[in-house]
Amino acid sequence: MTTSPSPAPTPSETPTPSESPAPSESLLSAVGLRVTFPGRHGAAVEARAVDGVDLDIRPGEIVALVGESGCGKTTLARTLLGLVRPTSGRVTFGGRPLDYASRALKAYRKRVQLVLQDPSGSLNPRHTVYDAVAEGLRIHGYTGDERAAVAQALSRAGLRPPERFFLRYPHELSGGQRQRVVIAGALVLEPELIVADEPVASLDASVRGEILALLLRLRTELGLSALVVTHDLGLAWNIADRVAVMYLGRIVETGDVEQVLTAPRHPYTQALLSVLPEAGGDPVVLTGEPPDPSRIPSGCRFHVRCQILASGKAAEEGVADACRTRDLPVLAGSGGAQVACHWAAGRAGVTRAG
């Protein structure tokens, strides 16, 4: 699989992800993160939604967290935001561990903002655009010029002239305009990082490129970092500097976006990419049951659905037994290309993981 996803249409002046700075110190970091939930109907077995994750996001970097529904990526994002307290492990921001006291969390959420998938659901239909954007300022006791701050945020989000939108209601806006209002509501607090959960999933294809271009422009102009949670590898290709592929609570492949998406090493990443129209060839049809966080299999957590194991290729390499019985370590949070796969481990250019 060497064909890359084709980019969505974006303005010619839009900066590319490769132009981002790459400082070495992390802005946001997760180390050994685990989140478990009680089993259904009082069952003794807990659901391991996040089952050991290390992840770093550097200043000015956009990281895409990719995986199918139910893999744990939204729970991981909510944990990084402080909305879910981890069962074990830690989250640090700016080198300091996240403090879960209410006052500390309030200060933290001013610096790290969430952009939700559905702008219609995240905007109060009874609030004007002005009130929707000003809400964060009021919650955090902003004492400056509120009108100027709201106008600046709307302008940065591409709604110009901003005053034209002040008294409008969400139902009077297009889907793209509503998403820009949501983004303005995050920008008004001048955060250092945004967590965008499927930021263009509910938008028409013609609007998606505009929103992606906006996020890239904000990174360039404001030095904004972002974690973009998505199931769409095409979106990751267009916006991210680095990609982390998640499966059943754990990151199974990570690295620079071009390296991972043009030469995927993990069979799961290969399967995700195979269904893109640009991939060519036959899509990989995964067998077995979908992921269940309360029933983590022994060995490689993907082995029960793995096309490499099913085809006999893993046996040819002498790793079939290891795939079924030997667990793989947690990948490091940043650095070069890494893969948690017995079959792929040891191949050129990949950090060995197991």
Rank of each mutant, 00 (worst) to 15 (best):
residue 141 G to K: 10
residue 16 T to C: 12
residue 214 L to E: 03
residue 108 Y to H: 10
residue 28 L to G: 01
residue 127 H to Y: 14
residue 276 L to E: 05
residue 203 L to Q: 06
residue 10 T to D: 12
residue 195 V to R: 00
residue 87 T to I: 10
residue 248 L to R: 13
residue 212 L to R: 08
residue 177 Q to I: 10
residue 107 A to R: 12
residue 68 E to F: 05
residue 189 L to Q: 06
residue 118 D to H: 05
residue 115 V to T: 06
residue 127 H to G: 09
residue 168 R to C: 06
residue 28 L to D: 02
residue 340 A to G: 10
residue 298 S to Y: 06
residue 328 L to T: 01
residue 54 D to L: 00
residue 26 S to H: 10
residue 317 E to I: 14
residue 148 A to K: 15
residue 279 A to Q: 00
residue 23 P to I: 04
residue 123 L to D: 07
residue 209 G to M: 13
residue 293 P to K: 06
residue 298 S to L: 14
residue 92 T to P: 11
residue 98 L to D: 00
residue 300 C to W: 08
residue 195 V to Q: 01
residue 122 S to N: 03
residue 104 A to R: 04
residue 253 E to V: 07
residue 328 L to A: 02
residue 186 A to R: 00
residue 246 M to I: 12
residue 91 V to E: 05
residue 224 L to N: 01
residue 165 F to D: 03
residue 130 Y to L: 11
residue 339 V to I: 11
residue 277 P to A: 12
residue 133 V to C: 02
residue 307 Q to H: 15
residue 84 V to G: 11
residue 75 T to C: 08
residue 24 S to T: 14
residue 328 L to F: 04
residue 149 A to H: 02
residue 21 P to T: 07
residue 25 E to K: 13
residue 117 Q to N: 02
residue 325 T to G: 13
residue 73 K to F: 03
residue 210 E to A: 15
residue 37 F to R: 10
residue 219 R to E: 01
residue 270 Q to K: 14
residue 73 K to N: 06
residue 241 D to R: 02
residue 275 V to L: 13
residue 124 N to R: 09
residue 59 P to I: 00
residue 30 A to M: 12
residue 273 L to K: 04
residue 131 D to Q: 12
residue 92 T to S: 14
residue 264 P to H: 05
residue 116 L to I: 11
residue 12 S to F: 12
residue 266 H to A: 07
residue 342 H to P: 05
residue 90 R to M: 13
residue 269 T to N: 06
residue 26 S to E: 10
residue 305 R to E: 03
residue 337 A to R: 15
residue 171 H to N: 12
residue 75 T to N: 08
residue 169 Y to D: 10
residue 321 D to S: 14
residue 210 E to M: 15
residue 266 H to P: 08
residue 61 E to S: 04
residue 298 S to E: 15
residue 353 A to Q: 10
residue 217 R to T: 14
residue 37 F to C: 09
residue 283 P to T: 09
residue 20 S to M: 09
residue 178 R to A: 06
residue 124 N to K: 08
residue 213 A to K: 00
residue 161 P to R: 04
residue 98 L to M: 02
residue 287 T to P: 12
residue 312 G to P: 03
residue 243 V to G: 02
